[in-house]
Amino acid sequence: MTAPVTVTGPTTRSAVRAVGLGKRYGSRWALRDCTFDLPAGSVTALVGQNGAGKSTLLHLAVGLTEPTAGRVEILGSSARRQPRDVLPRLGFVAQDHALEPRFRVADMLEVGRRLNPRWDAALAREHLARLGIPLGQRVGGLSGGQRAQVALTMALAKRPEILVLDEPAAALDPLARRELLRMLMGAAADTGLTVLLSSHVISDLERVCDHLVILAAGEVRLTGPTDEVVAAHRLLSGPRTEPTAVARMHHVVSENHTDRQTTLLVRSTRHVYDSRWRVDEIGLEEIVLGYLSQTAPGKDVTE
């Protein structure tokens, strides 16, 4: 069992809170002992490899599955137990988009209008016009990027307070991915929308997200605001050695050795006194990779 590391606690109203959350399928825990707290108005990336438990976690959050252990709340209530409190304020974009390929785009909007009392038809039409997606087009004839845009438009037209997206950009080319993130960030700027998105692509998350949850093998390895996460990590490189001395002063997240050299990702802001180590700052992407490449969970004490 891992002690999940929280770099700092949120100070504002909570939008998503998980406490000891777990899900077991048969004898296998898909997700175990997850605890984190995401403030309202934040944009959070849930990162991890395929099979790390990201979809399971999102499905638990939006109430599609029942937890085996612990609980998860959206805007203070459980989506499963108090759906009337949560569902009208929640948008969810599933990985497969749940669009009917035989429907025209206009038909999808009509479905949205009938299912959602707060539906904003003008916003939906304006978004699609700006993207140049014709309302008469059948969903099955749209490109992957356009389908993702229609799915996001449908979720935004609900006027949600929180939007949960499962791998929104996984199947998109870089340009379509950028377009989608633009639209998403524009919506966040407009309404103060809270966003929780899962992704196994981490290259441009740094510009989009202000909070991070790193998931590996069904456990939360790290959570916190991205700028504090970046500030709390350093890369040490030096001659080949066992990191025992360093580990006494600093938490070693991952280590890499060649014949001559040792490279350590450490979580610590303390000074490194041993001058054999070269100390470098490290970007978010490399930090995430460091946690994902951990073989054993980082058992440790929060500094």
Partner: peptide, 16 residues
Amino acid sequence: TVKEVVETLAINPNTV
């Protein structure tokens, strides 16, 4: 404006 920056660069509004 924050929205203009966000939509041009596809970045987080809180960053701006």
